[in-house]
Design a protein around this nucleic acid. Structure first.
Length: 259
DNA sequence: ATGGCTTCATAGTGAAGA
């Protein structure tokens, strides 16, 4: 069982990359963020031809999430229950007995801004909802672009980034609060290369210089974490022409998890 | 260097991302 997440920064532009990546990697589930596409434009036909089904919640220009999967998705919900929000940032579906939650956490713009407050409020609502969702679905995976680098080792230059949005204390505290629900950062269950990142700025040749942040994560509840055999960031698509600024993250689970 | 790219909505630039 292979679970993956990828912020594609426009599914319209990145569809060829996504189709190639699906074909080469054959994940069971791929969560997408920043599809930036209304639902009526979603490329369901192309994905079906590649052997995938999908649920999606999109909008024009900004945000937008999708869960692409081989098996049928069930019990789909979109949006954070109890949190009024125009922005399409959350999608949950049950796939082969696993509750898959796909999130595009707000960026926050800058510490102290209105968008930063919205980010913290959103994360707080997410945490509260997850607490309930975990009671209903003990096998839960939370995948997405968290827009939080949890630790200094997830930041290429911690000093330069100190206190900045994506690394600030309150954001990291929100990340830890979610972990404390019993969700494990699958990437850190294993030994990893130094300076592992999932996002690099388009500017300054940041990718070539590996000036990145690890802000895309796959968190697993205990019953899934114990079956997790590996987690890796796939830098290959970031090297392509016209890449997304994010790389896919993949977690592998042993065994056939069924309802 | 408070920018550097990239995308989108637009039709010349501006917002937003991270």
């Amino acid at each position: 069982m292979k679970l993956a997440t990828w912020n594609v920064n426009s599914l319209k532009v990145r569809l060829p990359h996504v189709l190639d990546w699906l074909s080469a990697n054959q994940p069971d589930v791929l969560c997408l963020q920043e599809t930036k596409q209304e639902d009526r434009m979603f490329p369901l036909g192309e994905l079906r031809q590649a052997g995938y089904q999908a649920v999606f919640s999109g909008q024009k220009t900004y945000n937008g999430v999708a869960i692409v999967c081989k098996a049928a998705p069930a019990e789909t919900i979109s949006g954070l229950p109890g949190f009024a929000d125009e922005q399409k940032r959350l999608l949950a579906a049950t796939v082969r007995g696993i509750r898959v939650v796909c999130v595009y956490v707000p960026n926050g713009q800058s510490v102290g801004s209105e968008k930063y407050q919205y980010k913290l409020a959103w994360l707080s609502a997410l945490q509260a909802w997850l607490k309930e969702e975990l009671l209903r679905y003990p096998k839960l995976a939370l995948l997405g672009d968290y827009n939080i680098a949890p630790e200094d080792r997830d930041v290429h230059d911690p000093l330069a980034w100190e206190g900045n949005v994506l690394v600030s204390g309150p954001e990291r505290a929100a990340f830890r609060a979610i972990e404390q629900l019993g969700l494990h950062d699958s990437f850190r269950l294993f030994e990893q290369p130094e300076k592992s990142y999932s996002w690099w700025d388009y500017r300054m040749m940041a990718f070539r210089r590996n000036m990145g942040l690890r802000i895309d994560h796959i968190l697993l509840s205990a019953p899934l974490a114990k079956d997790c055999t590996g987690c890796a960031i796939d830098r290959a698509p970031r090297k392509l022409e016209r890449p997304s600024d994010h790389a896919p993250v993949v977690a592998e689970l042993v065994g056939e998890t069924r309802v």
